[in-house]
Design a protein around this nucleic acid. Structure first.
Length: 606
RNA sequence: GCCCUUGUAGCUCAAUCGGAUAGAGCAACUGCCUUCUAAGCAGUAGGUUACAGGUUCGAUUCCUGUCGGGGGCGCCA
């Protein structure tokens, strides 16, 4: 890969008709080293067709010239060929050069997937940010899986990432939650009926069963129960809203918020989704951040008053219309608080150079006004980036169901119980964010046996099993006798430390050339894949797509399974066995790292 | 009505942001356990990339139009 880029100057011969300065500029802009889809086309490829229009030569002719020039230079550890029809220069790297690239991994000098050139970006990534009014559903699970994997990948690329969860605990929905808890409590004490949508319009209540559970929990503390009965004496069975500024309401609101938040956090922990920062909307109000942000907007002339409301001139900054910040009632809109939220993000001491969000596609209309607000605050709106993800459709009994606050809704918790943490995360992150996921519950349940995640994990477990068998006593299943290991762990480590590319080459590849071409190809494919892993991780980070890692892990697992069936690791020849053990070690490390980047466990045995 | 997004194998999805013969996994079919885990391997079959134009050496990808799916257009949060 690197060698091809360094070869740029040599390509000059091929494009002689063009002034030198021109083609160098062209190459810097357009040369792209890629990994061919088809392995027969070599390990790396460069397409030179785009030069056709400048050189007035047919693409294959250019490719041929370039390949011939490159072949004359022995420094590249590769042979170059060209495609007779398409304008491709293909490079096939020598096995020795591939093995050399693998050495740091085996010697423990670098982690699997680590790039030599690392980014130093500081990224603030907000995701999930569910309202604290109920359990997480499947859609939240998607953002959790995607966001956490992204954090792991970006960190692996060298970025420092702060994962943030914003708790929307100020608005109407928190009042509704307090209302709901209030009436569920009264219901359980036999003091009032829980309202029905028909009888009580508008209906500011959450009908979900989890509120019943919450009420039970609340009343289980004798002191709280007594206190609540006292409130009933005082206020009767009225909406909690009617005592909005008083202790009972505030108590219930805070209680339900904390309980729901604890519920959500517990599940996120179980899913190994990590957050570094929890931001409360109420804090923004309490700390005066909202006033501060509004004052800043006013001062820079980006607001005006009309019909008793304060407006943001967002249409001047790319939004389709202006937006209200302060209602004529004097209350802040959600946008006002969110403006403060972003003002705070951009003012953080970490001085983030990217402020990112993962939002559902239903929020896309919100992006322009947020960008406008950020620009109006004097921050660089280009550093604001939103990953829009399509939603999750739930399929039950072959019928699509909408995710919503239905009484019996399928929660993320239910799904995790059904298919497990690993399968849930793998499944939710396996597809690109811009495709809608059809989550078939029945399929997910049955797929838990035929799931690609187990295929990948199994490859890792097999690697571990081989290494275990090589260095630890095992029991023969037939005779029941204890079989002593062929090598000690120390011996294996020592061998790994002393290996050179030449040694590897003669032990890994040479015996296979004469014996079995299929095995040779299998080993070569694996080594190539291992070498390309760091680049794959960098790609996934660049295009913010963890699903690339999913694909990579599955491919590597597949290649390993083939290798496993094609040639025995613990073969008779001791040196050869050691070399293959070293290869297995590299595969194991790489698979473990791939799974780790996805937040999926890498089991030692299955 | 306007805006965003999407349409690829029977199903769920890829395709390295314009490149080579469009690839995987399920499901289907045929073989393979006396050997490091068969949660595996080897193979077969499956396509007019919704449709019609256009741009160029080259289009699943970009542009236009048509048809279908999803979403958004509050002084809600």
């Amino acid at each position: 890969m690197e060698s091809l880029k360094q070869a740029k100057p040599l390509l000059g011969d091929a494009v002689a008709p063009l002034p030198e300065a021109d083609w160098i500029a062209l190459f810097d802009k357009q040369i792209k080293v890629e990994v061919p889809k088809n392995l027969e086309h070599g390990d790396y490829a460069v397409n030179v067709s785009f030069l056709a229009r400048y050189t007035k030569l047919a693409p294959p002719v250019i490719a041929q010239t370039v390949a011939q020039v490159l072949n004359q230079h022995s420094a590249y550890n590769a042979t170059f060929t060209w495609h007779p029809i398409a304008g491709f220069v293909n490079a096939k790297v020598t096995e020795k050069a591939l093995l050399e690239a693998l050495n740091p991994l085996l010697l423990g000098k670098s982690k699997a997937g680590e790039n030599t050139s690392k980014t130093t970006e500081r990224i603030l990534l907000e995701f999930v940010s569910a309202n604290p009014t109920g359990p997480l559903h499947l859609g939240h699970g998607r953002w959790a899986a995607l966001g956490d994997s992204l954090r792991r990948i970006l960190e692996h690329c060298g970025a420092s990432v702060c994962a943030e969860f914003y708790i929307n605990d100020h608005g109407q929905q928190m009042s509704n939650m307090a209302n709901s808890l209030w009436f569920r409590c009264l219901e359980q004490l036999g003091l009032a009926q829980f309202p029905t949508p028909e009888a009580d319009v508008p209906f500011p209540y959450y009908p979900g069963d989890y509120v019943k559970t919450l009420a039970e929990q609340y009343l289980s503390a004798p002191q709280q129960k007594a206190e609540l009965e006292g409130w009933f004496q005082q206020y009767g069975a009225v909406r909690a809203e009617t005592f909005e500024t008083q202790t009972p309401f505030l108590t219930l609101r805070t209680y339900s918020r904390d309980a729901m938040l604890a519920l959500q956090r517990g599940l996120l922990d179980a899913l190994h989704v990590r957050f570094d920062s929890w931001q409360f909307e109420t804090d923004l109000h309490a700390e005066g951040k909202v006033e501060e942000a509004l004052a800043s907007l006013k001062a820079s002339g980006h607001t005006y008053e009309q019909e008793g409301a304060l407006w943001l001139k967002s249409s001047e900054l790319g939004d389709e219309k202006d937006r209200v910040l302060v209602k004529s009632s004097g209350a802040y809109t959600y946008l006002a608080a969110d403006v403060a939220n972003h003002d705070k993000k951009f003012k953080r001491v970490e001085n983030f150079n990217r402020v990112m969000h993962i939002w559902g596609a239903d929020h896309h209309g919100y992006i322009p006004r947020m960008k406008a607000a950020i620009a109006a605050l004097g921050h660089n709106a280009d550093n604001f980036q939103v990953i829009l993800g399509q939603l999750v459709n739930l399929v039950v009994n072959g019928e699509k169901t909408r995710m919503g606050k239905r009484k019996t809704m399928l929660t993320l918790h239910d799904v995790v119980e059904e298919v497990g943490v690993d399968a849930t995360r793998f499944w939710l992150v396996a597809r690109s964010a811009d495709s809608t996921i059809e989550f078939d519950l029945d399929l997910a349940a049955s797929a838990s046996e035929e799931n690609p995640v187990f295929y990948t994990q199994y490859a890792h477990a097999r690697c571990s099993g081989i290494l275990r068998q090589a260095t630890e006593p095992s029991i023969n299943r037939e005779s029941g006798e204890t079989v002593q290991p062929r090598f000690s762990k120390q011996q294996l480590d020592d061998v790994f430390q002393t290996y050179t590319a030449e040694g590897w080459n003669s032990l890994l590849f040479d015996p296979l050339v004469s014996a079995d071409n299929k095995a040779f190809i299998a080993v070569r494919e694996i080594v190539l894949a291992l070498v390309q892993f760091p680049e794959k991780v960098a790609d996934a980070g660049r295009v913010l797509s963890p699903h690339l890692i999913v694909r990579y892990a599955m491919d590597l697992a597949s290649q390993f399974h083939s290798f496993y069936n094609a040639c025995r690791v613990l073969c008779e020849d001791e040196q050869q066995a050691l070399a293959r053990l070293a290869l297995v070690r590299c595969i194991q490390l790489t698979l473990a790292q791939s799974l780790n980047l996805l937040g999926v466990s890498a089991p030692e045995k299955m």
